[in-house]
Design a protein around this nucleic acid. Structure first.
Lengths: 222, 222
DNA sequence: CTGCAGATTGACTAGTCAGTCAATCGCTGG
DNA sequence: CCAGCGATTGACTGACTAGTCAATCTGCAG
């Protein structure tokens, strides 16, 4: 029993950690279960001793990490802080998650978060909770008047989360620099961009009437 | 030759259109080439008459559409408009692209844009051009002083594009409502959120207009 | 020492599917 | 009417791999 609780979780964890590396390197669909087993240094069959399928490994990885994020968002929301600082904390948490384990975040974003036909659909409810957690922060800000009432909280949450996920994607694809300084700066910049806006407050540039002829056509073909 | 330009492109186009539907419905990895052939109403082998591989179909779909978007962004940038209106046009174009052909945009976002290990990496340069096109608009705004100089144009472009892509993802996953009105409103809201920011300018407009239909998305869901 | 139970092994099976290819179709020009 | 050629067909193959399973190992309790 002591062995069962010392060795067994050990190998299981080794398999999960190996899977993160393999999935991140080759992609879930382009790797074999034997790649994971080899990376973990265990026999092929042992993977199926701990997991029922290849997919279950990915599910486990996602759920483990996502729950941590949901807990973090909930905890941040409960703090007594200005709304902007709460969003800054959320951005900081997600960015630090990437910094701490880029492979895992890569796998979650690439293989789950955007996989509308497989894992994404399966975990839709979980993914949604993250939006809702952020929306709760925005909603409180709207009610207290610090955020615009004209932008629905759920909509604002999507924009905010989307901006952050795009930054992670930029790092994953190596189109954005990845020094410690870049990560730290990004935390502040993304909050400034979304909460404060891109426009200069001083100039107070008024946009033209949105219903006017600012044409946008998707160039219909076929 | 008349036949070659009338019939041949016809079947080819039927295969491409069928592939969009099948890829969107089942996902690129979860469908068979025979599914595409069946959907198109052609024989299996004909797919390989027009395309060298299953992947080439996806590449073709992506490149066709992405080029249209790059052209649109370039054309919008060249217009004589305030920067905010340019970004409004870009957002409008992308959102209308989704509205016009949701399956195609779903495939592009789900199978290419976020597929860091396969197609995404292959088309990284193309994807990047979109960021750069948006960044050019932001950069002009910074130089003329209407946008904050403290937020790098490339960074702002990532946030802006990320917010839009997240909206599309929300529609794809059906977590956001998809009426015509929702699409139209989203165009203005995303620009207001990113350019104007979520925060209230100077004064909190607390109990100004609670009955207005602007903020009418109930957050009552559990 | 013995036997159980869970951990571990890796060869094997069963099924899948991308891509091939030889045959056939159908148009067009001679 | 035929020859030629691209378009079209769909059965077939070769390669791949997720998941199974019977054998083996290991630690421990009796």
């Amino acid at each position: 029993m002591a062995a069962a609780q010392k060795d067994a979780p050990d190998k299981r964890r080794m398999i999960l950690d190996a899977a993160v590396r393999v999935f991140a390197r080759q992609g879930f669909h382009h790797c074999r279960v034997s790649d994971v087993a080899d990376e973990a240094g265990v026999a092929y069959g042992l993977v199926y001793h701990y997991f029922n399928s290849k997919e279950e490994i990915l599910n486990t990885l996602f759920l483990e990490r996502w729950q941590i994020m949901l807990d973090a968002i909930g905890e941040i929301d409960a703090r007594d802080l200005p709304s902007r600082d709460k969003l800054r904390s959320v951005a900081g948490f997600i960015i630090d998650s990437y910094r701490h384990d880029p492979d895992l975040m890569k796998v979650i974003i690439v293989e789950v978060t955007r996989a509308a036909n497989s894992f994404g659909a399966l975990h839709l409810a979980e993914i949604r909770k993250a939006y809702e957690g952020i929306a709760a922060i925005v909603e409180a800000a709207r009610e207290e008047g610090s955020f615009k009432s004209g932008i629905p909280a759920e909509f604002a949450a999507m924009c905010f989360y989307g901006a952050i996920e795009q930054l992670l994607t930029g790092w994953i694809f190596e189109v954005l620099p990845r020094t410690d300084e870049d990560f730290e700066r990004a935390k502040d910049l993304v909050v400034e961009a979304i909460c404060g806006g891109l426009e200069n407050g001083e100039h107070a540039v008024r946009a033209s009437d949105p219903s006017s002829g600012v044409a946008s056509r998707p160039a219909a073909s076929g």
